[in-house]
Design a protein around this nucleic acid. Sequence first.
DNA 1: CTCTCTGCAAAGCATTTGCACATTG
DNA 2: CAATGTGCAAATGCTTTGCAGAGAG
Lengths: 139, 139
Amino acid sequence: MEPKTTDAGLPQARYRLTKQRVAVLRALGDGTHLCADTIHQLVRHELPDVSLGTIYRTLDILRQIGLVQAFSHDGGAARYEATFEKHHHLLCSQCNALTNVRAEGVAQIAAAVAERAGFKDVDCALTIVGRCAHCTARG
Amino acid sequence: MEPKTTDAGLPQARYRLTKQRVAVLRALGDGTHLCADTIHQLVRHELPDVSLGTIYRTLDILRQIGLVQAFSHDGGAARYEATFEKHHHLLCSQCNALTNVRAEGVAQIAAAVAERAGFKDVDCALTIVGRCAHCTARG
DNA sequence: CTCTCTGCAAAGCATTTGCACATTG
DNA sequence: CAATGTGCAAATGCTTTGCAGAGAG
């Protein structure tokens, strides 16, 4: 997890820029929410031998660096997205589609609540669940 | 999932009130957030032979009825709680403790965002993550 | 007596990990 | 060359499920 240190105590480990990692980043590039398995399939188009394990390891590293965020709900497979700006999520309870939204004011409310409870280093995540316009139209 | 119907189309299946189900409800009675395994251990005190499978089946039914809610985060084990009043969650990123909080205004914001996106039957869940007072004090 | 529930054990799915080899810097 | 990354396959953890017998109404 943490970079190892030399005898002198200096951080030594650097992240290597491998083709697998580049491919994963590229797969997430267009703002979509993809599960590990889907990413695996996408990356296989250019690197037929990547293993799913590598996908998971890569996603984990990218998450540590802060380039990627994971979203999970109700025990289903996690969905990953590239980190751009702070946002919240709209989730359709019927088709499971996931969209990003901004929700002004939520962060302030969360900060106030957290402060009252003595929490530090606070972040918050709002998930709005409902039937999306498309599913509502179809029934 | 859905209650079966007779030839006449009337709902026939009724939920039975078994000792196992009562025990699970009682285990959740005091407002705690417990994972299935912990509930299993608790229920075993009075019913030594309950299976974990039954715990899961019971929790699922109670969730359908609306008596129980599940909370999951980052792929870890789900935690269950009895449903009282609408609330949000404070989660400690260090010790993983989970607390209920009220967050005035969040529901309105969520409703507005959802409406703009054409969502119907909307609900929302805010999770505030940070280091709790206790963990902050210890380091 | 019928239909539902349960225990058991096995299966399922998403994710993690150990190891020997390949690769990066 | 040294340290990190990868593929593979097995292991893990949580949850679900099939089945035959037990129990509720």
